[in-house]
Amino acid sequence: MLKIKNLHASVEGKKILKGVNLEVNAGEVHAIMGPNGSGKSTLASVIAGKEEFEVTQGSIEFEGEDLDETSPEERAHKGVFLSFQYPVEIPGVSVTNFMKTAINESRKAKGLEDMPAKEMLKLIREKSEMLDIDRKFLSRSLNEGFSGGEKKRNEIFQMAMLEPKLSILDETDSGLDIDALRIVANGVNKLRSADKATILITHYQRLLEYIIPDFVHVIHDGKIVKSGGKELALELEEKGYDWLKQEATV
């Protein structure tokens, strides 16, 4: 589904990604771990097409198509979803209205009519029930005054509504207490399916106790320095990142 080859990216002239290779197939869950500043979040933003990052070398292919010239909204229309580490507030725009706009814009891009209101309501009801989201929550302004847990849950709700092919969860576990983490992880697990793929970006192993990955990659200084199965995460938890850093510099 996703093929990243020798990806180099920089922001304001500063090199952050220095040759990332990654292949993600449908049905798989990949965890990308690494210390602060290693390039994890940058990788997520570059896949989503954030313009301030300049791809200087390499390529990202999504379902056989090079994404180089593709705008962020077109990537979204193709089925790429990014759950933000810091979701932004949009005052006066309700969660419902935002979702309605997002869904209809994607439909428009595919040449479809707006989703009928009845169908939209049904979808909202279904997904909010699945994720145990209070309906009142949906009429609030997007992320405005939301707690950390509410923001992250709202991201997962949007993911459920948009049904993307590839979901990238950027530090979804950060700032969550254990209950909120469990709820969010539950949601992600419910959305797992054979035709979808997930990339989890995380600093800690904790999230991976709830969402079991098929592959774990460690990123350091803009490169994937080690890949393995889920047991790699445990090893990291035990030994920290330093041994990998040393290994990488040798």
Partner: peptide, 9 residues
């Protein structure tokens, strides 16, 4: 960018 990422131009 947040809106763009959700498919909104």
């Amino acid at each position: 960018f947040y809106c763009n990422q959700r498919g909104i131009d």
